[in-house]
C-alpha cells in the first residue's frame, strides 16, 4: 500500500502541478495572445524559445537552471538581493523550473486557439463599441475556451510527469521537493519494487484519466465561429 511518505509525495506533486498550471495560465495567456496577433519579426524567436523545452533533455534545462539560480547565477543573485534566498532545493525553485519545463504545453494550445479565432470576431466587437481589453475578455477568451482547457490539462499532467528537471533542481527533500516521480525512483534504487508498483500504477491510472478527460472535453476540433 501507499506509505505516509508516498502520500506526502502525492500531495506535494498535486500542489506543484496546481501552482505551475495557475502560473502558466497567467503568464502564458498574454504570451500566446501576443504570438497569435503580432506581425513583429520577434514572433519567430519567441515561438522557438517557448518550444525549446519540447526538444531539450530535461537534464539540460535543469542544469542551466541550477547554474542560473545558484549563488553565482543571475537568477540567484536577483533572488538573494530580494531577500528570497536561493531557489535550488526549494519548492519555489521547483515551481520556477516546472513553469519553464511545461511552458510549451500550455502556450501552444492557447496560441493555436487564439489564432483559430481570426480577426473577424474582434473586428465585429470593435464595431459594437468594445475596446481592446473588453474585446479580449468578452470575445477572445470565451472563443478560445477549448485552448484553455487543453492547455490547463496538458500543463498539469506534464508537470506531474516531470523527473529530470526535478532531480537536477530539487533533489529529494521529503515534503519539499520529493515528488512522486522521484519517490518512485528512490523506491527502485532501494529495491522496494512493491511500493514502486503502487505509486507507478497510481500515476499510470491518473495519466490515463487525464488524457481521457482531455479527449472528452474536445471531442473534435469543432468550428468555434459560425
Amino acid at each position: 500500500m501507499l506509505s505516509a511518505n508516498d502520500l506526502t509525495a502525492i500531495w506535494l506533486t498535486l500542489k506543484l502541478a496546481t501552482v505551475v498550471t495557475g502560473v502558466l495560465l497567467l503568464i502564458g495567456t498574454p504570451i500566446a495572445w501576443w504570438l497569435a496577433r503580432t506581425r513583429s519579426w520577434w514572433k519567430r524567436p519567441v515561438a522557438a524559445i517557448v518550444a525549446l523545452p519540447l526538444v531539450l533533455p530535461p537534464t539540460v534545462i535543469g542544469f542551466y537552471l541550477l547554474v542560473a539560480m545558484g549563488p553565482y547565477g543571475p537568477l540567484g543573485q536577483l533572488t538573494e538581493a530580494l531577500g528570497l534566498g536561493l531557489l535550488p532545493f526549494t519548492f519555489a525553485g521547483l515551481v520556477v523550473a516546472s513553469v519553464i519545463y511545461s511552458m510549451p504545453f500550455v502556450i501552444q494550445p492557447l496560441h493555436n486557439a487564439f489564432e483559430a479565432i481570426g480577426e473577424r470576431p474582434l473586428e465585429v466587437a470593435a464595431t459594437l463599441r468594445a475596446g481592446p481589453v473588453d474585446r479580449f475578455f468578452s470575445v477572445a477568451m470565451p472563443l478560445a475556451r477549448p485552448g484553455f482547457i487543453t492547455g490547463a490539462i496538458l500543463g498539469f499532467a506534464h508537470t506531474i510527469g516531470e523527473f529530470g528537471v526535478v532531480l537536477m533542481i530539487g533533489g529529494s527533500i521529503p515534503g519539499q521537493t520529493r515528488v512522486v516521480s522521484v519517490q518512485i525512483y528512490d523506491h527502485v534504487q532501494a529495491f522496494e519494487y512493491a511500493r514502486a508498483h503502487w505509486l507507478a500504477g497510481a500515476l499510470l491510472v491518473f495519466s490515463f484519466l487525464v488524457l481521457l478527460a482531455l479527449y472528452a472535453f474536445n471531442p473534435s476540433r469543432r468550428a468555434t465561429w459560425s
Binding site: 473577424r120 470576431p121 473586428e123 465585429v124 464595431t127 475556451r145 468555434t224
Partner: peptide
C-alpha cells in the same frame, strides 16, 4: 457606426 459584414458574424459563444 454599425457594420454589417458580408458573412454572418454572430458571436458563436
Amino acid at each position: 457606426l454599425a457594420y454589417v459584414f458580408q458573412e454572418a458574424s454572430l458571436f458563436a459563444h
